[in-house]
Design a protein around this nucleic acid. Structure first.
Lengths: 191, 191
DNA sequence: CAAATTCTTGACCTTCAGTTCAAATACTCC
DNA sequence: GGAGTATTTGAACTGAAGGTCAAGAATTTG
């Protein structure tokens, strides 16, 4: 009953996510969000309550999409080293293909809101933990399949790779593809 | 001639640096800067021209202090691996000892202003390049002294370590000391 | 001391971020 | 069609960010 929405909230969240990703949380104004979604400011507030809540939804979406992509990509055929290399390379190349690299929304948020926004910090932590889990799982799979040495500690290795990944997505802001490839190759030496 | 300044601009820049470091560029208001420096807003504008220019000075100072610290710390007695371990550990522990970790001003700036502020991006790039250079030099020294294998490529290794360092200073926002130590240890395996 | 110069203070201005709201609009059910 | 409900729209509000400026205060030079 009542007037039907003339926009899809899920689509709007996705568009908001892109905007937050490119411009940061503080750097995105309600006017920006209205423009990005094609929805009036008032409507956005009516639907999402506040900028912060919309951002929360955007972060959640980012986490879901990211972990899906990670899982799929890591588990295509190949050795652990090959798949993790492909995964890291993919993320870097996507970012570099953009007019302006924007890194990882989670890492950006950790830096922008870390400490000052407990909930955002927790959300970021959940995402990194999830990715770390998937990496550790993939390393274990590699050990079962014999392409990763048994003395490697999957959890330690996963934390290390996650840290490298975060670094890469900052380094894309200032460095070019060849350097990034070398970093990836060096990081994979332990596998 | 004229009325003498009743504050030291260099000190004010240092205080501004701390504030930008903790709160980010956009998150720091002229009022914040006035409070942090104990200097009136008007005076700050009179001396530094604009918030952006003050930030530029703060970034420069950060670069100078950082590269000095890096050089000294890396070149105390010990093997390359020991000294680089000590250096990475130092930075992480300093950050963790703070009420709220604030990472690395350069990395924070790369994420906050990367793309949108060409000069800031260049400044950050200069700093990372400088640190990378110092790391590469230290690896070479290790090779001369026989504690680093000759087949290691110092430049590649330095880029890799720099990337790890950047990652660490984001990861401090969400993770605890033991995990960070493991990451450092894993990253040092190539030395 | 007067003149010239530079710095400080704090009020003031403009712009915009973030949000709210009243009125208008679109729909369903009876 | 009218009642009731939900959404849209854009105007309007509040507060603060970033910056400017006129007036006065502190100094050196003559």
């Amino acid at each position: 009953m009542g007037r039907p929405k003339n926009f899809d909230p899920d689509v709007a969240v996705a568009q908001a996510m892109e905007t937050f990703w490119s411009k940061g949380y503080a750097g995105t104004s309600p006017a920006d969000l209205a423009e990005a979604t094609g929805v009036g400011k008032g409507s956005l507030y009516h639907t999402f309550g506040s900028k912060r809540e919309l951002f929360g939804k955007a972060l959640d979406l980012y986490g879901r999409v990211g972990s899906e992509l990670t899982e799929e990509y890591l588990n295509e055929p190949g050795t652990a080293k090959e798949r993790i290399r492909a995964y890291l390379t993919l993320l870097v190349e996507i970012d570099l293909s953009l007019p302006a690299p924007r890194g990882c929304l989670a890492a950006n948020t950790a830096l922008e809101l870390g400490g000052r926004d407990a909930e955002a910090t927790r959300a970021v932590q959940r995402m990194t933990d999830e990715t770390t889990r998937l990496l550790a799982e993939r390393v274990r799979k590699g050990q079962r399949e014999g392409d990763v040495a048994p003395e490697v500690d999957p959890d330690v290795q996963a934390h290390f790779l996650m840290n490298t990944l975060i670094g890469l997505r900052v380094t894309t802001r200032t460095h070019e593809s060849p350097v990034l490839r070398q970093i990836i190759e060096t990081a994979l030496a332990g596998l």
